[in-house]
Design a protein around this nucleic acid. Structure first.
Lengths: 238, 238
DNA sequence: CGGCATATTGAAAACTATCAACGGCAGTGG
DNA sequence: CCACTGCCGTTGATAGTTTTCAATATGCCG
């Protein structure tokens, strides 16, 4: 835990402010947020932010890096429920019950702004603007949670996943033409609920068709239409 | 649209109050809800409550009956995102943008309490207790949205679905030993993302093994352990 | 009663997982 | 520095699951 001040981090000058709580807030509201959020948690790659079933004391806003959220099922498989990127809020689904529903670990070196939950809820009582923003974030999270539930075949899942993550990354780096996937193919398979060999085969297929390129986790989408299309096509035949 | 007063409906005497906004509220807060929520919408079977992409003016709380929430994909398939039962709030995910993300239709004769969104958000600003309750409901909805994302095989999906819906119904009729599924097997298949023949085959298998009984949409679970177990087993061989 | 939606079952085809083997790359320790 | 180890990515062959196509019941509603 470090101080935001010491690291020169603040909501008003944050590069992902437009995606986070501070979006569209006036200076006085930003001030209230800055008063509340004074600490930053720094995680090394693979380090844990929280563990399933432990008490929830804070929400976290990703400042830099990325995290995976998961649980372990009866068979011992890691079921990934979400990936989080800068600007995303972690822990909202666990507010009810004040207990972490999932474990969260860092996919890379990651920094997170610490939002003490009780004081934050107090703030929501007193600040209608921040409340509105938080309700919007809740709503957007639900939209996001639904968004991948809908694809059926492995092809669709991969296409939807790639397009979805691609757009989320472009929100963060609008000028960029490529995107770095922080997660492994195994993570992707655990997120989509398909075998990792299948993930790899579909990636290989998309690369062979020059629809995407992917090397060392750097992803480019060359033909977005073809990628959307491929969701509707057959399992890759060689 | 009918008046709640005329139908003798009110939050304080509602049978699903413990599942809805009014849960654990004191009389004065209930009064505020009753002031806000004055209308009931009555739907016949298959009638629509809302249509995708139209403006959102109200949230709805199911009073009686049940609904399905869905969208139509590029292929023309109906993708069901949720089922709603008495006490559930419909529309939360569409608050951001004030536009219906999904269409909602009634699975049977259904009555819904009408919650005007703007006035409701005002109320949240002024009533910390109701705000807390609403945030809990948001959180619970996210937990719910995640809960089925995790099963991989068709067997698991069906088992999880049956157990999940069974428990939800028992929350509403604690004394009952059976449950009426309002949705068709086709609906279930569109919800789980599997072919409806597969749904039917697995139902047949579970019936043959006497793990459940299911006739005319009346479901009984005879052996809950076996049902949980069956999620981990092979595709039904005859 | 007729007509249409829903439910049921079989057989074949398609898709996906599993098992197995190998290459590459990064980090570790000698 | 280099071998060693382990993780990640890649591909083939095979087995298993699920969809698709087709045909036949069953039940509901006017």
């Amino acid at each position: 835990m470090k101080s935001r001040l010491a690291l020169n981090i603040g909501c008003s000058k944050c590069s992902v402010r437009h995606l986070c709580l501070a979006s569209n807030l006036e200076d006085k509201d930003i001030l209230e947020l800055n008063n509340l959020i004074t600490l930053v948690k720094c995680l090394a790659k693979n380090e844990h932010l929280s563990t399933m079933n432990t008490p929830l004391q804070n929400l976290y806003a990703v400042y830099k890096g990325s995290c995976k959220e998961y649980w372990i099922n009866e068979k011992g498989d890691e079921c990934i429920t979400n990936f989080y990127f800068p600007g995303d809020i972690i822990g909202i689904e666990s507010v009810e019950g004040r207990k972490h529903l999932f474990s969260v670990s860092a996919l890379e070196e990651t920094r997170l702004c610490v939002i003490p939950i009780e004081r934050f809820l107090e703030l929501l009582n007193n600040n209608p603007t921040i409340l509105r923003r938080f309700l919007s974030i809740n709503s957007l999270k639900m939209q996001n949670d639904q968004s991948l539930k809908m694809s059926i075949t492995a092809n669709e899942k991969i296409s939807d996943f790639l397009l979805h993550i691609y757009h989320r990354m472009l929100e963060r780096h609008p000028d960029s033409k490529e995107v770095r996937l922080a997660m492994s193919q195994l993570d992707i398979s655990n997120y989509l609920g398909i075998a990792y060999e299948t993930v790899n085969r579909i990636f290989s297929h998309l690369k062979r068709k020059r629809i995407i390129s992917l090397k060392n986790k750097i992803l480019k989408i060359h033909d977005q239409n073809a990628l959307e299309e491929s969701g509707r096509l057959d399992y890759p035949k060689l």
